[in-house]
Design a protein around this nucleic acid. Structure first.
Lengths: 107, 107
DNA sequence: CGAAACTATCGTCAATCGACGATAAACGAA
DNA sequence: TTCGTTTATCGTCGATTGACGATAGTTTCG
């Protein structure tokens, strides 16, 4: 069992909860960072949200920076890249639909 | 909490175990289908492997077709597409690295 | 130095997961 | 039909997860 299997599984595990998906969506939609607004957005207890944030942070998916009295959370793009690549190798026996519509090589 | 969050979390949950990642890798590397060879490849008890296969099947990630006395498992590309898309929206502030090297639009 | 606000940690509890052996079910071959 | 092979299901057990309230740190402001 390759160690990369464990790494991919760990990444997937960090995503394997609706609340954590929700949090990532929030961070994605938020230009800067957010702190305690996450709690009311997900509708769970503060301690529970803190635990979800801890898991995401432990997986390297988000990063927390101390910003005054609160903590500023932000996405850490690249942490999910191995998993994204793996999924990419699984799903796209699709043909030439690449990148986003409109994206194209530098003419 | 959007229901799509639950759907994505369910897909991630199906991937959140090294043995299941291993199984998907095996299916990816296997041209046709495989049945009981999976058991010895992952090195767990037959009942345990069967349970992992059941979870993957329940998530729609693999499909099992009865092939004589054995069962032929194969990847179900497209089932993971929502998760792949979501991850794609998270990771790639990358530039113009698209598709695989060598892949290019039909001339 | 307090007081207030925000976050992390602790302790607890029910629920789920992962693993196994044992057993049952389905199918082809003899 | 009977046997052997292959897969699924059952029952059990320990470990982990997810949730909460309560509590302890930090940092800013008064």
């Amino acid at each position: 069992m390759a160690p990369e299997d464990d790494a991919l599984a760990a990444l997937a595990k960090a995503l394997a909860h609706p609340a954590r998906i929700r949090i990532l969506r929030l961070l994605l939609a938020t230009p800067g960072c957010i702190g305690g607004d996450i709690v009311e957005a997900v509708g769970l207890a503060q301690s529970t949200v803190s635990e979800h944030l801890r898991l995401l942070r432990a997986a390297g998916i988000i990063r927390g920076r101390i910003d005054g009295p609160r903590i500023c959370y932000a996405l850490n793009p690249g942490a999910l890249e191995p998993l994204s690549t793996f999924l990419g190798s699984l799903v796209p026996p699709e043909r030439d639909v690449c990148c986003l519509p409109g994206a194209r090589e530098a003419a």
